[in-house]
Amino acid sequence: MNRAARAVFPHPLLTILLAITWCLVANSIALGSIVMGVILGILIPLTTRAYWPDAPRGLRLFKLARYVVLVIWDILAANVAVAWLVVTRSNTAMHPKWVVIPLELRRPEAITMLAGTITLTPGTVSADLSDEGHCLLVHALDAESAEEVRDEIKDRYERRLKEIFE
């Protein structure tokens, strides 16, 4: 995208998202609310541009959509498993574990998405980041070995996020 367009639309995806959000809040797809949504979608990224200077560019949108579908499926499938575990398994029979995940991702946006994915997929909650941002601390509710959880997260989510953002 050339520089003039970049000056008007610092975050083109955010513009579209804000327009859709406005149409949902107004609960109409009349021309008036679409125009209002687009105006807000241009003004808000312009006024907040200074707070998000280094936004990621060149996202692979198709892979992002596939990743979102995969995560939604994982949330639904694994939530049933954890609900069953919570109801049937006694407290002493569970093996909670801390898992340390060395990160290959460097972009803050990508790490945020990985941490959110880990928390929403049941059985694991992301707890903390190391002080330089190279490791993620994850708590697993019931795991046989920490290495298994680490390898699954790295292979299933981090690899895909790396393809989307880098």
């Binding site: 190391s130 002080d131 490791c135």
Partner: peptide, 8 residues
């Protein structure tokens, strides 16, 4: 943590 000094 495996590479940094401590957790944030």
């Amino acid at each position: 943590p495996s590479s940094d000094s401590t957790w944030a």
